[in-house]
Every structure is written in C-alpha cells, then in structure tokens.
Write a protein that binds this DNA or RNA. Structure first.
Lengths: 200, 200
DNA sequence: ACACACATGTAATTGGTTACATGATTTC
DNA sequence: GAAATCATGTAACCAATTACATGTGTGT
C-alpha cells in the first residue's frame, strides 16, 4: 500500500551537486569516487536517469555548457526546492540496514573447509583494509593541511569538517579490521596445527 | 555475455543446511537471525525460491516430515554434490563490495544542515551500536562457555570457533563505532558552538 | 476469543549493476 | 595512430524486499 524502502540515490546526487555548484553527471561520479567511495558509490546507469528525474521534479536545473569542449557536456545546479528537499532528508534518521559481508559469511562456514583456505581468505581481507589505509591516511593529512587552523590556511571549504569525520570513520574501521585479522590469523594457525595433528 | 555478479544467497542457505543437518526454510531463517544477523540475512521471499532451486540442481534433498505438527513442514539436507559445491565456493576469494551506509552519507552532507541535527543522527547511530553490543557480548560469553576448554565442556560443536570469529568481528566493529561516535559528537559540539557564536 | 509464533509460498515492485552504443579530446 | 580519459545515455538482467495469500498450533 505505502511505498516504503526508498533508496537515497537521488539525495546522494543532489547533495554532491549542492556541495560543489555546477557539475556534470560524469563529474558527480568522479567526486564520489574521490570522497564517498568508502560508504557510497553510484554507477552511471543510476546517475544519468537520476539527474533526469531530479530535473523533471524541479530539484535541479541545467546550466549553460561552456560551448567548446566535450560532447554535450551538461552541468546541473540545485534549485531552492532541491536544497529544501535535501535539508529535510538530512533530518530523517538514517535507516540501519545490515550490509551483507560475503567474507564473513565464508568465514562463518570455515569449519567446512581446511583451515589454510580460511587463512588465505583472511589474509586477502587484511590486504584490502591495508590498501584502504594506504589511500585514506595520506588523504586525511592532505585535507587537514588545506583546512588547518594554522597561519597558512589556504582555503575554507565548509563541508570539509564533515568529510573528515567520514574519512576518520573509514580509517578507524580499516585499522580495527587489520587488528582483528591478525588475531584471527593467530587463532586459525592454532586450529590448523590441531587439524594437522589430528590428521596425522 | 558472461554472467558475473552472482549473489551468494544459494551458498548461504546451503551452508546453514550443511552446518545443522535437516532444517526447514523457516528454521534456516531463524538460525540466520540468531547467528549471522550482523553480516548476512535473507527474507522468506529469497529463501523459499532458493530452496526450490537447490533441490532442482540436486544440491539438497528433502527429508521425511515428522508427520504430525505444523502444515507441510519440509526438511532439507545437503547432498554430496551440495557439500562439494560449498567447499569449492569457500576457496574463491570473497568479493569486496562497498556497502552503502546511509548514515555516513547524511553526515558527509552535514554542512548543509544545522549541527544539532547531525548530533541527533550520530546519537542515534551510537545507540544502534550499543544495542548490538548488548546483544553480542553476552552471546559471546554464552557460546564460549559451551565451547570452553575447561573440565565441564558440555558440547563439541565444530563450527563454533568460526562463529566466534565473526561474532568478535561484530563486537570490535560496534566498539569502534561507539568510540568514533563519542569523538565525533565532541567535534560537532565545537562546530555547534562556533555556529551559534557566529549566528548571534 | 485473540494474539502470537510457526510455516510455506507467490506477485509486485524497486533497486542496482553490467553491457551495449556512440563519439570527442588528450596524451604518448 | 593507438590508448586512455572524458562524456552521455539505454537496455537487459539480476537481486532483494515487501506485500499478499493461506493456514495450524499454542498460550493466555
């Protein structure tokens, strides 16, 4: 009867557009990959239809292209109605959906495989977290430098404090994951030893 | 051209059935809610069609119902082919998909709202993590007691070590979240003070 | 008598990725 | 002149939730 279960794709696009003034669909995606990749991403197959819908609903408007350049590059900007919609959405409590984690599912069934298989899975997972850290920790420092309260503070980008919060979340998560992986690998080693002992 | 992107619903059901012998669709779901709820869950709308497909593919077989009792209660058990399929799947490295986190998305756009709105969001998020801890920490202790190496070790449930690993992951994640929420709330408070000061 | 947990299944709808289709500009 | 990146869009397909439909057993 009632709709329920709406996704937040429209708001994600609207928000990026609001933060960064006039952007094309391509640029929205690129910005997401550089900033929200740890917790939100959209494919072009979602972005372009979403832009069309936002336009139809009057939440964004087109801007003139810069004439020369790439084919049919369209730029969008949020309208007052769009900004209002966004602000309203920000006050609604976020829904907590359990994300599916295929790695943890495999580990849960680990007793059905040989311990060394699971060690390989955990090692791979650890590598992913370490790679994230290698990208996010330098990024945090870079952004903090731009923002820094110190004397040479070059630019003032208001959304930055919030960007940093989400970035710190990603870093804390990755660190926690690496730590847990190490503990889990030690335990798997023990199980493996027991397994071999029993096997022989 | 190629299929790609398969989901792991079939393997999740197959794995639960393998761990716990004969189970009905309803029991599979119940077990998931008690054990994998932090990282995997399936709706009945997925489970029943999946069981049918696994049966068609010869990966599970039906067991006799216990006659009396509930209407048409069917029990399933994995076949040798099913166990082989599951073991093969366990050796394939888990795909790392970025889960969407609506809460972090809202926080990322926090500069577009009033600081106190975002504080409410973070408080709510913290409560979710605390609730998880309240459920998972006692569960961990309970399971460890059953498993315990000590003298009175009551039962030997082989998959338990792996269950504990995933449970410890959930606990570590929730603790990390609570800690991050506290730090973030402190920073939002500062931003809020600045906001009020500038506003007046 | 009513509610709640048990129990199975299908249909409608929504959400999302990947593949396809096309073409310009820049860089090596 | 080849490859990578920029750029927009549609179609096919897959995955998943929610709502619907139906009925039994148990506890209060």
């Amino acid at each position: 009867m009632t709709k329920v279960e709406r996704s937040s794709t429209a708001e994600a696009v609207l928000g990026i557009l609001d933060l960064n003034g006039g952007m094309s669909g391509y640029e929205v995606r690129k910005f997401m990959e550089e900033s929200t990749a740890n917790f939100w991403s959209e494919s072009f197959g979602q972005i372009y239809p979403t832009l069309k819908k936002l336009l139809d609903d009057g939440l964004i408007k087109t801007e003139e292209t810069d004439g020369g350049g790439h084919p049919a590059k369209k730029k969008y900007r949020v309208t007052d109605a769009g900004a209002a919609r966004l602000q309203e959405w920000l006050t609604i409590p976020a829904r907590a959906r359990v994300p599916r984690n295929e790695f943890l599912l495999k580990l849960f069934f680990g007793g059905l495989a040989q311990p060394k298989e699971m060690r390989a899975q955990v090692e791979a997972w650890k590598t992913v977290a370490e790679t994230d850290l290698l990208r996010d920790e330098p990024l945090l420092k870079e952004l903090q430098m731009k923002f820094g309260k110190g004397p040479g503070r070059p630019i003032d980008y208001p959304p930055l404090p919030y960007w940093l919060m989400t970035l710190r979340y990603g870093i804390a998560e990755a660190k926690m994951t690496v730590k847990w992986c190490n503990e889990t690998l030690a335990e798997l080693k023990k199980l493996d030893d027991d397994y071999v002992k029993r096997g022989v």
